[in-house]
């Protein structure tokens, strides 16, 4: 059996990845502190509850990423000859599914509260000898819950782009947008304080809607990755044009008549096949090996491109057996 060689990140990319892992630990730490702070002031406010669940869910992506990091660098072996690079995609799918499901449950719960016209009670608390409205404390906790994710989210996006870590990139993007949901929860509580019973449940529903939407977007993305969709840029939805680039590179080689390449994403790296029509069969085996070596070192994201030769009478563009 032919087992793949182990994927090696370039040295400077490895440094970027180490930074990203450190960043994810910080992210996890702050997220846990946010969940703790919100739990302390959790009253019977629906918006607060949904925001709290959202923050609990946001623990999953960093945990999934950090766990996947442990497994992904294992060398390919007899049982898993293609290696473990896809561990991150699986983790991503799990996190996205949890997000979508819980989001819709929370949405339903908020809508039921809205339909029942439930009046939310926000009590009072005694701190340092004075009694004040619990809502103020909740707003304070929510403000705290908004600030670290915005900063870390920004850093995450920058760092994730460098090492093509899509899962972290998406997580960072969501964290950056999180301040809106925090603000919505604050609006809900401020609204209840103003005597508007619906403000709280409505804010809860809007946050839940946002959670569900994020979940569904991520499920689509994760399923696309696992279905070997053509590679995309980390940051954009546009397709990556690396395949075309490789074809051009192959065509510049003297022995190549025409070439076609297809690539897929395996987590943060690309693999695929190159179909080459040679001018002649002279030295073909050697040419193929050299071409494979060239392609596999062309871009740091390329893990393994297998190069095969096709007779000239066949059209290289559609190699169907």
């Amino acid at each position: 059996m032919k087992i793949r060689p182990t994927y090696q990140l370039p040295l400077e990319k490895q440094k970027d990845l180490d930074y990203l892992i450190r960043l994810e630990w910080w992210n996890l730490g702050f997220r846990i502190s946010i969940v703790g702070v919100l739990a302390l002031v959790l009253g019977s406010s629906q918006a607060m509850r949904v925001a709290w669940f959202e923050d609990m869910l946001s623990l999953i992506p960093p945990i999934a990423f950090l766990i996947a990091m442990r497994y992904r660098n294992r060398a390919p072996n007899e049982t898993f000859p293609y290696g473990y690079q896809r561990a991150t995609s699986i983790a991503f799918l799990c996190a996205a599914t949890a997000l979508a499901l819980l989001g819709s449950i929370l949405l339903l719960d908020s809508l039921i509260k809205l339909a029942k016209m439930e009046h939310p009670s926000i009590g009072a608390i005694e701190l340092f000898g004075t009694t004040f409205w619990m809502g103020w404390l909740m707003i304070g906790a929510l403000v705290y819950s908004v600030i670290p994710p915005v900063i870390i989210g920004h850093l995450q996006m920058k760092a994730a782009k460098k090492v093509h870590e899509k899962t972290v990139f998406v997580d960072g993007k969501m964290s950056k947008a999180d301040w809106m949901t925090g603000l919505a929860a604050i609006a809900g509580i401020v609204g209840v304080g103003a005597g508007l019973w619906w403000a709280d449940a409505l804010a809860g529903a809007l946050i839940a809607l946002d959670v569900t939407k994020d979940g569904i977007t991520n499920v689509k993305e994760a399923v696309g990755d696992l279905l070997d969709r053509r590679p995309r840029f980390t940051s954009k939805a546009e397709p990556e044009h690396l395949a075309e680039e490789l074809e051009q590179q192959l065509c510049t080689m003297g022995w190549v008549a025409s070439a076609a390449v297809r690539l897929r994403e395996e987590g943060h790296i690309f693999s695929g096949e190159a179909f080459v029509v040679p001018h002649s069969n002279e030295n073909l085996a050697q040419h193929l090996r050299d071409a494979a070596h060239f392609l596999n070192h062309y871009d740091w994201r390329i893990y393994e491109v297998v190069v095969t030769a096709w007779p000239s009478e066949d059209r290289a563009e559609s190699p169907v057996l």
């Binding site: 919505a184 609006a187 401020v190 103003a194």
Partner: peptide
Amino acid sequence: SLRYKHVLLFILLGILPAV
């Protein structure tokens, strides 16, 4: 999604002056 988030912002901006 940006527009939808603007809706949230409008609600907030509506509630604050009311308060």
